[in-house]
Each structure stands twice: as C-alpha cells, then as structure tokens.
C-alpha cells in the first residue's frame, strides 16, 4: 500500500529525514516511536503533503502512485488521512459544514455524487456516539475552544467519516487521560480492517496497549534504526530511548 524508499526531507536547508525506508501492507498497523526531534512528526506531515518541508530525495509510492507528486487534497482523495498532533481551530466554520465539505470534495474527486444530507447526518450521529461526542459539537466551529481531548476525538471523528485507506495518527494520544485514550483507541480499532492501514506515531508505548501494532519502528535522528514486532515497544518502555540510541548507533557503525 505504502512504500517509502530512502526519503530525505528537511526545512530551510536543515535535514530532518535522512533516508527513511518503510513498507506498509494493506490492513497492517505500523507504529513509529522515537524521542522528540527524531523526525516522526515530520514524516507524518511529509506524507500528508505539508509544503513547509522540502523533500530532497527519495520516493514514496501509495498504491503504486507517486505520492509526492500529489497536492494535499489529491492525497486525501487517494485515501490518505493525517490526524493532526495540533488540530487547527477554524472559527466561523461549523464542524458539520466542514466534514460534509471534506467528504463531498473527496467524493467529487473520485467521481462520486454528493452524499445525501440526511444519510450524512445519520452516519455522523452514529460515529459521534461511538466516540462519546455530544451531537452539539456538530454545530460548534471546527476545534474552536475545544479542549485538547475534544480536538483529538474530533480528529478521529473525521477519520471515521472520511474512511481513508491509510490513516496516519500523529501523537493522537498526547493530552488524553486514560478514559479518553480508551475511547479514542476503541474508535480507531473499530475502523481496522483488511483494506485499511495505520501509521501510528507516538512517543509513548501507552497507546499501543490499546491499538496493538503489527510492526514497531524506532526512529532516531531522521532514520528508522530498529524495526520489530509489538514487543519492541515494551522493550523500549523498559530501557528508554537513550540505551536504544547507543545500541542503534553501534549497530550502524558496525
């Protein structure tokens, strides 16, 4: 589904990603862990098409297409979704209007008709219930004045509405208490299926107790330094990133 080869990217001449190789197959959940500044979030944003970052070399194929040649909205239509670490507040646009505009834009790009307003409302209500969100949030402006937890739920709601093929979750667990974390993870797990893959970026192992990954990668200084099964996350939890870094460096030197 997603194939990243030797991806290098940075901002303003500063190198952040220094050769990422990664392959995600349909239905898989991959977790990317790593210390702050290792480039996890940059990778997430580059995949979604943020133009702040400049891709200097490498290749990204999404279902065989050259992802880097697509505009952000085209990537969304192709089936990529990024749940933002810091969701943006948009006063003056209601959540409801925004989500319908998003869904219809994607449908239009795929040559599908606009969704029926009634059907849309019904499916929104169902999805909000699943995420423990009051219906009143539909009429509030997008993320405006939302608490940290509400913003993260709202990201997952969008994920549920847009039903992407690849969902990239950027620190979706940060700022959530344990109950909210369980609800959000439940919402995400409900979306898992053979046709949908996840790339879960997180600093902590905690989230992975609830969203169990197939593959765990560890990033350090812009590279993936280790990959393994879900046990790797537990090992990291025990040893911390510092020890791993040393091991990784010696591995690289070797």
């Amino acid at each position: 589904m997603l194939q990243i080869n030797n991806l290098h990217a940075g901002v303003g001449g500063k190198k952040i990603l220094r050769g990422i190789d990664l392959e995600i197959r349909p239905g898989q959940v991959h977790a990317i862990m790593g210390p702050n500044g290792s480039g996890k979030s940059t990778l997430a944003q580059v995949l979604a098409g943020r133009d702040t970052y400049e891709v200097t070399s490498g290749k990204v194929l999404f279902e065989g297409r050259d992802l880097l040649a697509l505009e952000p909205e085209e990537r969304a239509a192709a089936g990529i979704f990024l749940a933002f670490q810091y969701p943006v507040e948009i006063p003056g646009v209601t959540n409801m209007y925004f989500m319908r505009a998003a869904l219809n834009s994607i449908r239009k790009q795929r040559g599908l008709p606009e969704i029926d307003a009634f059907d849309f409302m019904e499916s929104m209500k169902r999805k909000m219930q699943l995420l423990g969100m009051p219906e009143a949030m539909l009429n509030r402006a997008v993320n405006a004045g939302f608490s940290g937890g509400e913003k993260k739920r709202n990201e997952v709601l969008q994920l549920a509405v847009l039903e992407p093929k690849l969902a990239i979750l950027d620190e979706t667990d940060s700022g959530l208490d344990i109950d909210a974390l369980k609800t959000v993870a439940g919402g995400i797990n409900a979306l898992r299926g053979p046709g949908r893959s996840f790339l879960v970026v997180t600093h902590y192992q905690r989230l992975l107790d609830y969203i169990v990954p197939d593959v765990v990668h560890v990033m350090s200084a812009g590279r993936i330094v280790r990959s393994g099964g879900k046990d790797l996350a537990l090992e990291l939890e025990r040893k911390g990133y510092a020890e791993l870094d040393e091991a990784a460096v010696s591995e690289l030197v070797r």
Partner: peptide, 17 residues
Amino acid sequence: FYLRSRGIPVRDSRDLL
C-alpha cells in the same frame, strides 16, 4: 493545509476560510 489535507481543494479552502 488542514482543510486541504481533508480533501478540500485549495481554491475552495481559501474561499471557505
């Protein structure tokens, strides 16, 4: 960028904002 990442084309996103 937030709006575009949700599939809303750049012109529509500008208009919406």
